[in-house]
Design a protein around this nucleic acid. Structure first.
Ligand SMILES: [Mn+2]
Ligand SMILES: [Mn+2]
Ligand SMILES: [Zn+2]
Ligand SMILES: [Zn+2]
Lengths: 137, 137
DNA sequence: AATAAAGTGCAATGGAAGTGCATTTTTAAC
DNA sequence: GTTAAAAATGCACTTCCATTGCACTTTATT
């Protein structure tokens, strides 16, 4: 089991207090979070720092961004050894119309999508909306 | 061949000058458009009217909204007899990373997506990004 | 023609993303 | 340890788009 410090170091970014806190927060969540979610999780925090931290995390493939159609960008930790950076191996995302949470279905990969002749597919965003397991039971 | 008046009447909305102009503009476009696109297409136009017109069109299944991940809502005319309103029979959308245009691939329906036990899929948003036919040739 | 209902236009608001710059913290060099 | 450079952080501000309140105009109905 890697410590948070080790994770950050292995990704070649500096270990700072804020980054560790944010990473820890993300790791404890099982749903995708917005910048505001993170902001509200800390008594004292600055949007810009969070924004730039998430950008750094994204560049280093520590988190991936999720566009679930709500208009607000969400983030979630990448799985171990994911390939977000090379835009492949992407899983699908589920947005619950009831509780409004968005989660990664990490072991449901996006199927191969056929596009017409002349079109070249580079990557795919797929969001399923409906009722999540917690809300349907 | 139905006239624009007939289309609007058949959807039970009032026929107004602005609505006809907007409908005509959409019909002439083969790509999805933003509110600003429509705004710029007319010498004199008001964002609010366009916004509310598109909302009305959407409610009446004359157009459908497209979230292509750019963060800006786009719209395109529905096909004849589409079922946008009941959230089924949905086609996929393609966003070109080169020309930045987004188009409906109306005869490429979204495949059945498997979700884990306990989850209920109600609808699916699928956007493929890459290079469009015009840009790849 | 009179009235009610619906559509339109202007002004203003709100939310989120993004940026410039000064300050603080971290790292590395001396 | 002290110092200097590089990176991270925090504040203020800007931009862009979505959305709403309200007054005015147009359309449909009698
Ligand atoms: Mn995910
Ligand atoms: Mn479409
Ligand atoms: Zn739910
Ligand atoms: Zn193109």
């Amino acid at each position: 089991m890697e410590t948070i410090e080790q994770v950050l170091e292995s990704k070649n970014i500096r270990v700072t207090a804020m980054r560790m806190l944010i990473y820890k927060f993300l790791a404890e969540k099982d749903v995708a979070v917005t910048l505001s979610d993170i902001e509200n999780a800390f008594a004292k925090s600055d949007r810009t720092t969070l924004y730039r931290t998430m950008k750094t995390f994204e560049d280093k493939a520590i988190v991936h961004q999720i566009d679930d159609g709500t208009g607000i960008t969400k983030y979630a930790l990448c799985e171990q050894g994911c390939n977000c950076d090379i835009k492949t191996d992407l899983h699908l995302h589920f947005h619950c119309n009831n509780c409004k949470e968005t989660i990664c279905l990490t072991d449901h990969k996006i199927p191969q999508i056929k596009v017409p002749n002349g079109f070249v597919s580079e990557n795919v965003n797929l969001v399923v909306k409906g009722i999540c397991d917690k809300c349907s039971s």
